[in-house]
């Protein structure tokens, strides 16, 4: 739910990174955090287990700059990817403005990608959203791994509605900002329609 604050002249939007366990959602946020000017970012909060698996969510507030006199603030969240955290995952989607689906390129993780995408579709529906209409970007992560499937094969299996799709290697930053930019753009374009 975009929050437009006329008093503070701010637009606040919520973007959620979704995807199967260990696909690199947190790594995307970590890279964005590392490469963003300190004045434009808040703290990166990770609610993680002792083994650094996301338990509830990661959170990163980002100031992107000014549009039409309004400061644009994006709140980036990740969900816990592991299957059994579904109740928590669903909570994070509350009030979401845009979704990034991070897919793991390894062949062995294709079933997990497909299952996670179905789960996203269902959890969005439960909040009254529709994956067909919500701002949405697909990212093929871990392109550097030798076991990565060809991108066109992944596209065939995971493309949902012709959404913008990016190949990424999140620890090196490849494709990370392109993905963020694409989803932020769609979210801001949605404001035009209001």
């Amino acid at each position: 739910m975009t929050f437009i604050n006329y008093a503070a002249r701010e637009i606040n939007c919520k973007i959620v990174y979704y995807g199967p366990g260990l696909c690199g959602k947190t790594t995307n946020l970590q890279y964005i955090y590392d490469r963003t000017n300190p004045a434009a970012k808040g703290k990166l909060i990770s609610l993680a287990t002792e083994t650094d698996r996301t338990l509830f969510f990661d959170f990163l507030p980002l100031d992107l700059g000014t549009v039409r006199g309004f400061k644009t603030r994006f709140h980036l969240y990740t969900v816990p990817g592991q299957v059994f955290y579904d109740a928590s995952r669903k909570l994070i989607l509350k009030g979401v403005d845009g979704v990034v689906f991070v897919a793991d390129s390894q062949e062995a993780r294709m079933d997990a990608n497909v299952e996670s995408m179905r789960n996203l579709e269902k959890n969005l529906e439960d909040h009254g959203f529709d994956l067909n209409t919500i701002p949405y970007v697909l990212q093929f992560n871990k392109r550097d791994l030798p076991t990565a499937l060809p991108a066109d094969e992944m596209y065939r299996q995971l493309n949902y509605k012709g959404e913008p799709t990016f190949e990424a290697t999140a620890p090196l930053g490849t494709g990370v900002f392109d993905t963020l930019k694409a989803v932020a753009k769609q979210v801001l374009m949605e404001l035009r329609k209001k």
Binding site: L64, V67, T72, A184, K185, L188, M189, L191, R192, K194
Partner: peptide, 16 residues
Amino acid sequence: DSPFAEITDDDIDSLF
């Protein structure tokens, strides 16, 4: 219209 009805691609690109 709302103040955002006129947002252009350029406005958004300039953010990045």
